[in-house]
Computed example of a mutant assay.
Amino acid sequence: MSKTTIIGILAAVVVIVCAFLPWSTIESRHFVFTGMDTTGSNYGEPGKLNIFLAVAASIIFLVRNKWVARMNLFVGGFLAAWTFRNMLLFSRCEIGICPQPGIALYISVGAALVLFVCVLLTKTR
């Protein structure tokens, strides 16, 4: 296995772990939102898609095929776009109420970008 494959799989694990950590907090209403628990809002559960895409990218990293690597390019790009969307969604102000974004939200975006860069730098046969 190459270094980019190992780093990409580790970045996927970080994305999965960050889905269970606090992403934002609204202190005036005592809400703490994670990727898997957004009770009190209409955000849905975006952490489920983060986990699915990170697991798919990890599995695809292990397969050494040209077409599968191209599929991983789509999966990694979609994961990066989805985590960036989550960052915008969970850190925006609505109706004068501004949440405190958690560090796990930014770590998740950073790990997804690292995974995408690793997909770009992975060499195939």
Rank of each mutant, 00 (worst) to 15 (best):
G40R: 09
T122N: 10
N65M: 05
I51S: 05
A12G: 14
E27D: 14
G96K: 05
P46A: 10
R29C: 03
A80L: 13
S58K: 00
A54K: 05
C18K: 00
V117E: 02
Q100D: 13
T39G: 09
S58H: 00
T5F: 00
V15F: 01
L120T: 05
V55L: 15
I26F: 13
V117N: 02
G40P: 05
V119L: 07
T34V: 09
S2N: 09
A80T: 11
G110K: 08
R29I: 11
K123N: 10
L113C: 14
L53Y: 06
N72T: 02
T83R: 01
I95Y: 14
A12R: 00
L89N: 10
Q100H: 12
Q100R: 14
V75P: 02
H30D: 15
K3Q: 14
I97C: 06
F52Y: 10
A56I: 12
T122D: 12
H30S: 15
L121N: 09
L89P: 00
V32T: 15
W67F: 11
M71S: 14
C118R: 02
K48W: 15
V15A: 02
P99E: 07
E27S: 15
S41K: 07
V13A: 13
G110A: 14
V75A: 06
Y106Q: 04
E27G: 07
T25W: 07
A11P: 01
S108G: 08
K3D: 13
F33V: 04
F61Y: 13
C18E: 01
A11R: 02
R125K: 12
